[in-house]
Simulated assay, not measured.
Amino acid sequence: MKTMVVGASKGLGKALMEGLGEHGDSLIGVSRSRPSALQLREGVDVQWIEADLGDPLTAVGKIAQQAAETGLDTLIYNLGIWEDRAFDDSYDFLADDEDQLQAIVSCNVTAPILLIKRLLPVLLRSDRPRIILTGSTSGLTQSGRPEVTFGASKFALRGMADALREGYREQRLGVTCLNLGYLNTADPLSTPREHAAQNGGGEQIPVHDVVQVVRMALSLSAASFVKEITLPAILDPHF
């Protein structure tokens, strides 16, 4: 299996690079720069594309060119940015910087649309084409979150997933949206899961759990797919 992880240099993206794949599989990481150290699974081939999705048109051309040469079975779009004061009691929509709001929409909405459009012909050549979009519980109805632009961008990802499923059902394209709550990205995959789960006092999800969910979704046969998963922290009062 050939899997591309966009936003792969740190946090959840790095954990996906380190936790996915079996012997003989290929992983393609995409980020502005390659991380200095990765603890990879044995027998997994890793390639890297240095591209900045802050400039979507330039980046998607570079990524699509390499994907066309190597082939692709799964695209995981894990890149996302948010407002400076998001998830803080001081957040105020009226105080948001408008240039930053444009950048959020470009990275979280425009970039995945353009990238999927370019990569879809390559993906559809696979016997089991899959797209996984890293969404957020902020993109769910009545999420309880006030961050306007970030929330809107995550709503948009769910819309993309729905439309792609409708448009390419006959080609057996499976599209999954992961609605994730607050993540503990401070503890990498090398940290014992039990220790990582304790940090955050029940209000943060260890990246280990997300990797396990993604591995499950990718292990299914071509006859089924995971449409949507909501994964909040156990003490998230909104769920």
Rank of each mutant, 00 (worst) to 15 (best):
L178F: 06
P232Y: 02
A64C: 08
T3K: 02
D97H: 14
H195N: 08
E42S: 14
A186I: 13
L114M: 13
Y77K: 02
S190C: 14
A222K: 14
S136V: 14
D236F: 08
A51Y: 00
P188R: 10
K227P: 00
Y168W: 12
T70G: 03
L57Q: 15
T149Q: 06
G144E: 07
G19S: 08
R165W: 08
Q198M: 09
R172Q: 15
L72A: 03
S106W: 09
C107A: 11
L114I: 12
D97G: 13
T137S: 10
G200C: 14
Q171Y: 07
I63C: 01
D89W: 07
L94H: 04
K117N: 12
Q171F: 07
K62H: 12
V226N: 02
Y168S: 03
D127K: 13
E194Y: 09
S126H: 03
D162V: 07
E50N: 15
T110L: 12
N199C: 09
G54V: 09
G7C: 11
D25E: 11
C107T: 11
T176N: 12
A103M: 13
L94F: 12
L180N: 03
G159A: 06
K62R: 15
A37P: 07
T141S: 13
V6T: 06
L115D: 00
K2P: 00
I104Q: 02
G135T: 04
F225D: 00
G11N: 10
M4Y: 06
H238C: 10
H208L: 08
I49D: 00
V226L: 15
F155Y: 07
T137W: 00
D162Q: 14
A222Q: 15
P56R: 06
L40K: 01
Q100K: 15
G43L: 09
T3R: 00
R118E: 10
A163N: 13
F93D: 07
V148I: 06
P129S: 06
S33M: 12
L218R: 00
V105D: 03
S138P: 04
N78K: 05
E203P: 00
I205W: 01
P35F: 08
H238L: 11
P129Q: 08
S26Q: 06
K10P: 00
A196M: 14
S90H: 09
D55M: 09
M216H: 13
T58E: 10
Q39G: 03
G167S: 15
E18D: 07
S106L: 14
A161E: 11
M4G: 00
L124R: 11
H208E: 05
G181V: 05
T3P: 01
L38C: 08
D84E: 15
L124M: 12
G144L: 08
I116S: 02
L157M: 15
L101D: 08
W82E: 05
E50V: 11
A111Y: 00
V44A: 00
H23D: 05
R215W: 03
E147A: 03
G13F: 02
S143Y: 06
I113E: 05
Y168N: 05
G7F: 02
A37W: 05
R130C: 02
Y168H: 15
A68K: 05
M4D: 02
S9G: 02
K14F: 03
M4C: 12
L119M: 11
M17P: 04
E98K: 13
G61N: 13
G7E: 03
E50M: 11
L120E: 02
F155G: 06
R32M: 08
R193N: 09
Y91E: 04
S106I: 11
A15K: 01
D187S: 15
A222W: 09
P188F: 06
L231R: 05
